[in-house]
Simulated scan of single mutants.
Amino acid sequence: MNISPEEFKRYAKGEASPLEKGKIESWLNQQEDGGTEATGEDEQLAAVWRKLSATAGIEDEITNIRGGRSLRKGRLIMLSKIAACFVFAMGIGWLVKDYFIKPTVLEAAPMKTVRTEAGQRMNITLPDGSKVLLNAESELEFPEAFTADNRLVTLNGEAFFDVAHDKSKPFIVHTDSSYTKVLGTQFNLSAYGSDAKAVLTVERGKVMFGRHDSKEQVVLTVGMQGTLAYNKGVTSQTVQPEQESAWKERVLQLSNEPLSEVAKKIERWYGVSIKIKSENLKSLTVTGSYREKSLEQVLSSLEFTTGLKYEIKDKVVTITE
C-alpha cells in the first residue's frame, strides 16, 4: 500500500484528509487481522511505526506487526504519542532515507473530489470501471488511479455503487462512521454527516459493513439492509432493495419515517430549508412515493394524509399543526 511519510505525519497530527485517514486505518486494520502475509511494502510501513514508537518511548506497546496481534494498548493511545514524537523529534527525513528506499512507495495517485448540489444527481465512472450514481448534496473522493492493494473511496452523503469485480483488490468505502468492503457487487449506501445513522442495502453480491474497527462488522447479502447508528452496533433486516434506491429513478420514497427525517430528504431533493414548528409533528411517521413531483405537490399530499399545514416563502418551508 502506498503511504508516504507525509501522510503518516498528517494522520498522526490529525490533519489527514478523509481518504488519507481511511487508507492508513485500512492498513492498520489489515495488520490487526493478521489474515494476510505481509508484503515488502507492509514491512517497510511497519518498520516506520516501530521506529516512531521507539522514539516516543512506547516500543513496549507494539508487538510484531507481521504476526497476529499488532497493538497491545490501543491504537488511539499509540497514535497520540506518535503525534508528540512528530512534533518534538528531529523530523521525518531519516525515515525516507532508511525505510522508503524505492521511490515508487512514496508515489500516490492524485485525488479527485466530486460534489453534488441539492436536487442534483451525478454518474461517475471510477478508474477500475466501477459505476457510481451520486445522490443530492453528496461528496465522493477517490484517486485518479487505484495504485494501492485496494480500491479505497470516501463518501459523505448517498450513492449507489456498481462495483467492478477484482478479487485481488477489494473495494472499500469509508464514511465518517462506517466501513464497507466488497469485491464486486451492487449496493446503496446512505451516510450523510448530518444523519444519525448510516444505512447500506445490498442489491447484488455480498458486502461487509460496520465500523472501522473490524470487530464490529457484519456480512450482508442480497435483500439485506444494515443500519449503523452512532454509539450502537450494526442491525440488519430484510428489505426490498429497489425501494431503498428508488431515488435513482427520481422517486422520492418515504417508508414509515418520522417527519423530522422526511424533512431532510425534502431539503436535499428540492434545495429548500424546512422548519417544523411543532415537536409533536417531528415524530409523526410518513409513508408515500412521489415520482418526479414538485415540492408543492409533495407537501399538498402530506397535508392531505397527515393534516399538517405548510407555508412556502423564499425557499423556506414552515410546517405547523
Rank of each mutant, 00 (worst) to 15 (best):
N2E: 08
E6W: 03
E6G: 03
E7I: 15
F8C: 09
R10S: 11
Y11E: 05
A12N: 10
G14C: 06
E15F: 02
E15T: 01
K21W: 03
Q30P: 08
Q31W: 03
E32Y: 02
E32K: 12
G35M: 08
G35V: 02
A38I: 04
A38E: 05
E43G: 05
L52N: 00
L52M: 15
L52Q: 00
S53Q: 04
A54F: 01
T55H: 12
T55A: 11
A56Q: 05
E59V: 02
D60M: 14
E61S: 12
E61V: 08
I62T: 09
G67I: 10
S70V: 10
L71H: 08
R72H: 05
R75F: 14
L76Y: 07
L79Y: 02
A83I: 05
A84W: 07
C85W: 13
A89H: 14
I92G: 09
W94P: 04
W94D: 15
W94N: 10
L95R: 00
L95E: 00
D98G: 01
Y99D: 02
I101D: 11
I101N: 09
T104H: 14
V105G: 02
A109T: 07
M111R: 15
G119Y: 02
G119D: 04
G119W: 03
Q120V: 13
I124K: 07
T125Y: 02
P127C: 08
G129Q: 05
G129W: 08
L133P: 01
L134R: 08
S138A: 13
E139R: 15
E139I: 03
E144D: 13
T147G: 03
D149M: 05
D149G: 08
D149T: 12
L152G: 03
T154E: 11
T154K: 06
E158W: 07
A159C: 13
K167P: 02
P170C: 03
P170E: 06
F171C: 07
D176N: 13
T180K: 07
V182G: 08
L183W: 04
Q186N: 04
N188Q: 06
L189R: 03
S190C: 09
S190E: 01
S190F: 00
S194V: 10
S194H: 13
K197E: 14
L200P: 10
T201Y: 00
E203S: 14
K206D: 00
K206L: 11
V207S: 04
M208N: 13
V218S: 06
V219E: 09
T227N: 10
Y230D: 15
N231M: 11
G233N: 12
G233P: 01
Q237I: 08
T238M: 04
T238I: 13
V239W: 04
P241T: 06
R250N: 15
L254A: 00
E257Q: 14
L259I: 07
E261A: 14
E261S: 14
A263K: 05
A263F: 03
A263T: 08
K264N: 02
W269M: 02
K275C: 09
K275T: 13
K277I: 07
E279N: 15
E279G: 02
E279H: 10
E279T: 10
N280S: 11
L281S: 04
L281Q: 04
L284W: 02
S289G: 11
R291I: 06
E292V: 12
K293C: 09
V298T: 06
V298Y: 01
L299Q: 01
T305Q: 10
T305L: 11
K309Y: 05
K309W: 00
Y310F: 15
I312E: 06
D314W: 00
K315D: 11
T318Y: 02
T318G: 02
